[in-house]
Simulated scan of single mutants.
Amino acid sequence: MKMTRRTFLKDAGIFVAALGLEPVWLPKMADALEDMAYGRAPILWLQGLSCSGCSVSLLNSESPGPADLITRYLSLYFHQTLSAATGPAAKDAVERAIAKGGYILVVEGAVPLTLKEACKFADENFADQLLRAARSAQAVVSTGTCAAFGGIPAAPPNLTGAAGVDAALKQAGLRRPLINLPGCPAHPAWIVGTLMQVLKVGMPDLDAHLRPKIFYDHLLHEQCPLFALYQKKHFAENLGEEGCLFKMGCQGVITQADCSLRGWNGGVSWCIRGRSNCIGCARPEFALDPRFAFFRLNEENLF
């Protein structure tokens, strides 16, 4: 597929604006897109204990759309949801990628560390495959809360011993450049923007949980359109009521992400705009405490 420099600059401009970067970043982002388009930035995408929600989120990308993103920019060695290869052909594709090395390893889903047989690829446990793939990668990107911190698969009683990629690598004594992109699912701009930065700029500035600060540096609460209602103590206590959703269990007060600024499904909406409270899906503790409900409802008014 032949593309001009103008095409790369145009698409890079969209990404730079979406990521809130200064215009000076434009040439480097265009270079990153060119490398991705011409196969100079191969990506190996592996999936552990997951629902494939982050893959679906990636396909919700706009400007470029999913077709351009997959066929033009992401040089995928393999992707369990998107790749046409199955059986021995799929196994061979992964083996060739690992043998060649030098790729960015994107991991979706948690790693079963106790019951390793709970997730297998071909005849290999995913935990073992992950370690082999990570050793040959230039960087590892844990996409989604399951890959970053364990997420839903790691919720009690966690019979599989599900854990995030970072925990799995540390247990094996393996140190690799690693980035966490939590969210259930991760936003497509977080994924593509991070890949572009790793390619041409290097590792982004990360917080204590290895999350890029450009996406996770502020509390949702501080950027919420209902913040004024919170200050006025105007709270909704039941579904459909007007007011801040804090009393219904909104976790925006302890969750760091830029959902409110970025929007989902093409920037159309996000949880609060849809009148649902934030369930804290980008938090390291997401789903890990059974006493911490996603929603708090007034049971007296349900019926």
Rank of each mutant, 00 (worst) to 15 (best):
L69H: 06
V111Y: 02
A110M: 08
C259V: 04
V253R: 03
G173Y: 07
W45F: 14
I254W: 01
T86E: 13
A168V: 09
S61G: 07
H187G: 02
S276K: 10
H218Q: 15
V106E: 11
D289N: 15
D166H: 12
R40K: 15
L261N: 14
G252D: 05
V198E: 02
Q47K: 12
L245A: 09
E22F: 02
L19A: 08
K170W: 03
A122F: 11
R273N: 08
A189V: 15
G263W: 03
S260P: 06
D68M: 12
H234I: 13
E62V: 15
W270K: 00
M248L: 14
L59P: 02
L21D: 03
H209R: 06
R262W: 01
F149A: 03
D207H: 05
N277M: 07
E241S: 08
F303Y: 11
A137Y: 07
L33C: 06
F246S: 06
S269N: 10
N298R: 13
G101P: 03
D205M: 07
A17L: 10
T81Q: 10
G144A: 10
L26D: 08
E237I: 02
E237Q: 10
G266D: 09
C54K: 00
G109K: 04
A293S: 12
R175I: 13
H79S: 13
P153M: 08
A37G: 10
T81S: 11
L9Q: 12
F295G: 00
P188F: 04
A148R: 01
D35C: 09
L220C: 10
V106K: 01
A67G: 05
P66F: 08
